[in-house]
Simulated scan of single mutants.
Amino acid sequence: MDNRIYFRLGGKSYDLTETRSSSDIWYEWVESAKPFLRRMKISKGTLMWLCNRFKEASVIKGKSFKTWKCKDISISIYCSLKFNKFGRFISVISVNGNDRSVIILPENSFNEGWGELALKIHNFISQKPSLQKSNAEKGGLSSLGLRGEDSYKEILQKKKWCNGDQSQTSTSSSGSDRGPLSRSLVGRFPDCDEIPTRAEVRNWAQQTWRGIHNLQIYDMNGTHFLFEFQSRRDAEHILLGDWRRRNHPLLLEWWKPTAGAFHADTIFDWFWVRILGLPLQLWNDKVMKQIGDLCGGWLETEEETQLKNHLRWARLRVMGPREKIPSSIEISDGDLIFTLPVWIEAPARYRKKEEDGLRDREVNKMKEKGKAIASPSLYQIETEERFRDKISNFYP
């Protein structure tokens, strides 16, 4: 295969496979030796850097020890020349969050070096035009010298603003870039008893993803967070890693139209509801339980409601199902009856639009006759403004 090479070192077999994404070129390096199998995925810039380190290590003779380190966005690469009783070898360690992978490259014979391996890999990754080369031709700055073949000084000299040209650099996206959502990830902490806030997630990301700049984080629905990166390449590096906050894993995936929503057939065991405008004289545990039972079954009362941190609404967790939760409830207090709106905190749900061949044919017939036909709305959405009007009697 043109996108894969094989080689052997010290009784071990290796294969290197090229894969391309919309923003970068990646290489999956597999080391096979009984009874284990090691894998590592690195970018083209990192692989070029490793080739140079292999050449440098080949010049060193005898039992020596040396370590090199580089940073490729969120991935830290450690390349070390070592030796043991079996001879000299090079270890390559990739660290991306809690994800760690290792490749061991032994020397075929003492002091032979790894020059032939470096040449073979270099020829393999240089046989096709790459994204890195095209970026270098445009004069783009590389990340820590890992992108392109020009030096930092040469790249700077190619920049228009260094030559006195004050024209604006084009920031239009390429055809494959569909805007910020195409470089965004959706993440959640499924094992957390208490979901972190947006501010807590932001502080954690700033401390953990130090190689990522201009990262925007949004709270989608209280459980899912949207991570908008400056480039899709940054997002790809983060997606490869294993990330944890306070020992709780962060599950990441590319944004998609249904992110944060559930299929229409999903069944929920409970819901949070808000009882708006509950009179203060009824703000007690007994009334809370009665209200919860009217909504399918009381499960718990939110701590903020119990502590009365605010009196805008009472928040309860009820059993449901959703069909049993009314849009309003009536509570009697002496000779008074209060009607209170119930706000159900149900997550967004989706379904695929059903194809109705019969209606399509009817529409075509009406169009042929020159008559207008109205398309019915699939959903009726109550806007925030209407909701405010609905409860305006409770809030002056």
Rank of each mutant, 00 (worst) to 15 (best):
H237C: 08
H237R: 06
H237Q: 10
I238W: 06
I238R: 03
L239G: 04
L239Y: 13
L240R: 01
L240N: 03
D242C: 12
D242G: 15
W243G: 02
R244D: 06
R245V: 02
R246G: 01
N247A: 11
N247D: 14
N247W: 09
L251S: 07
L252H: 01
L252Y: 03
L252D: 05
L252W: 04
L252A: 03
E253G: 08
E253Y: 07
K256N: 11
P257V: 01
P257E: 02
T258M: 04
G260D: 07
A261F: 06
A261W: 03
F262A: 00
F262N: 02
H263P: 02
A264P: 00
A264S: 12
D265L: 11
D265Y: 10
D269H: 11
W270S: 15
I275V: 15
I275N: 04
I275D: 00
I275S: 04
L276K: 06
L276I: 15
G277C: 00
L278D: 04
L278M: 09
P279R: 10
P279H: 12
N284P: 05
N284Q: 09
K286I: 04
V287C: 03
V287Q: 01
V287N: 02
M288Y: 15
K289L: 03
K289Q: 15
K289P: 01
K289S: 05
K289A: 07
I291V: 13
G292T: 03
G292P: 04
D293P: 06
C295R: 00
C295W: 01
G297R: 05
W298H: 13
W298V: 01
L299Q: 14
E302F: 08
E302Y: 11
E304M: 13
Q306G: 06
K308L: 11
K308W: 07
K308V: 10
N309T: 09
N309W: 12
L311E: 11
R312P: 01
A314M: 07
R315G: 02
R317N: 02
V318Q: 00
M319H: 15
M319W: 09
P321L: 04
E323Q: 10
E323F: 04
K324E: 08
I325K: 03
S327T: 12
S327K: 13
S328G: 01
S328Q: 13
I329H: 06
I329V: 08
E330S: 11
E330G: 00
S332P: 03
S332I: 12
D335S: 09
L336H: 13
L336N: 13
L336A: 10
F338K: 02
T339G: 00
T339N: 09
T339C: 06
T339L: 01
V342A: 00
E345A: 00
E345H: 07
P347G: 01
A348K: 07
R349H: 07
Y350L: 05
R351C: 13
K352Q: 12
K352I: 08
K352P: 04
K353S: 08
E355I: 15
D356K: 06
G357A: 10
G357M: 11
L358S: 11
D360W: 11
R361V: 14
E362T: 07
V363Q: 10
V363N: 09
N364I: 13
K365R: 15
K367D: 12
K369L: 15
K369H: 11
G370A: 05
A372N: 14
A372C: 10
I373R: 09
S375K: 14
S375W: 13
P376N: 12
